[in-house]
Amino acid sequence: MLFGFGMVLVGGCVVGTLYKMAVGRLPSLVAFAGLLAGSALYAEIHPWWTDLARRGHLASTVTLPQILGLPLLPLLAPLVVVAGFWLLRWARQGLLHQESYAEGHLQPWKAALLLALLSFASTLVIGMPMGVTTAYAKLAGMLENLIVPGHVANLAFFAAEPLNFIHPLWGLPLKGGPGPHLDGIALAQFPLIAGILCGAALSALRLGEWRFYARVPIKQCLWAFVGGTLMGFAARMAPACNVWHLMGGLPILAGQSLLFVAGLFPGAWLGSVVLRRYVIC
C-alpha cells in the first residue's frame, strides 16, 4: 500500500522515475533522491521489520501452487484462457491499436511483448527477474558510508547477503546484498539502471525533446520527494519493487507478489486522493 501511495505522488514507479529523470524532469530527480532516502531509512528499522515479518509468516512455501499442493498449470490455465479471450476480442475490434500522433510512439501491445522478452532474457541470463531497488539501497549505503562509515558498518541490513545461489544453467555462483560494495547485485542491477537512463536520454535527444524542466512548483517537488521516500522504504519492506513482483513473481503466482498487488491498488487509490486534494489543487 505504501508503494502504491508513493508511486502516484511521484507520477511513476522506480523505473518510471529513472527514465523521466533522464529526460530532464526535476520532480523525478527529487523522487530519485527520495528513493535513496527511503532505502536508508529502512536500514534503521530492518531488525524490527524482519522480526515482525517473521511473526506474520503465512507459509513455509513460496508460490500459491506450493501452498495449495497443486501443480502450476491448472491454476494458470484459466487465467491464460480469460486473458487470451479478451486479447483476441480486442484484436478483432481493433482496440489493440491506439491512435497516436506522437513521434516515436510504441503500441502498448508491442511494448508489453518487448518487456516480457526482456524479463525472460533476464531470468535466463542472470537467473532472476529484473529489479533495481536493491541497487538503490546500495547507492544509499555508499553515500551514507562516506559520512558515517561506522554507523553503516553496524547496521544489520547492510551486512545481510540475501542473494546466494548457483545459476541453474551456467553453474556460476551469484552472491550479493544491499551493502555498500560491488557484488552480484551490483553486477545485475547497476547496468540495468545505467541502460534505462541512457536509453531514455538518447530517445529524447533523437526526438529533440530533451530539456531540463526546472520551472516546477515547490509543492510538487516536495510531494515527489515524499512519494519517492515511501517507495524506497516500501520496496525494502516488500522486499522488492513493482517490476520484480509484477513481471517476476506474479507469473508464477508467488504469494508475496499476490499480496503486493493486493496492496498496490488501495495504496494507489489513496495516493490519487491526496494528489487531487493537496498536490494539483
Rank of each mutant, 00 (worst) to 15 (best):
G4V: 00
G4W: 00
F5L: 00
G6I: 01
M7L: 12
L9V: 07
V14H: 08
V15Y: 12
Y19Q: 03
K20V: 04
G24F: 09
R25I: 05
S28D: 06
L29S: 10
F32N: 01
L35D: 12
I45Y: 15
H46I: 02
P47K: 11
W49D: 05
T50S: 14
T50W: 13
L52M: 09
H57C: 04
H57I: 10
L58G: 08
T61R: 14
V62G: 02
T63G: 05
G69T: 11
L72W: 10
L73H: 07
L73I: 08
L76P: 01
L76I: 04
P78E: 05
P78M: 07
V80P: 07
A83N: 05
A83T: 15
L87I: 10
A91M: 09
G94F: 05
H97Q: 11
E99Q: 12
E99L: 08
E99R: 11
Y101T: 10
L106R: 00
Q107I: 06
A111C: 03
A111N: 02
L115P: 02
F120R: 09
A121D: 09
S122C: 07
V125R: 05
P129T: 12
M130W: 13
K138R: 10
L139C: 06
G141Q: 07
M142T: 09
L143Y: 09
G150E: 10
G150Y: 06
A159M: 15
P162D: 11
L163N: 00
H167W: 00
H167D: 00
G171I: 03
L172Q: 12
L174Q: 13
K175L: 07
G176L: 02
P180K: 09
I185N: 08
A188D: 10
A188M: 14
G195A: 15
I196M: 11
L197K: 06
A200G: 05
S203D: 13
R211Q: 11
R211H: 12
F212S: 01
P217W: 07
I218L: 14
I218T: 13
Q220N: 10
C221W: 07
A224E: 03
G227R: 00
L230F: 13
G232T: 03
F233N: 02
F233Y: 10
F233D: 06
A235P: 09
M237T: 07
N242G: 08
V243D: 04
W244Y: 15
P251R: 02
L253T: 05
A254Y: 03
Q256L: 09
S257I: 07
L258Y: 06
V261M: 15
P266K: 00
W269A: 13
W269D: 00
S272H: 14
V274K: 06
R277I: 03
R277C: 04
R277T: 13
V279F: 12
C281E: 12
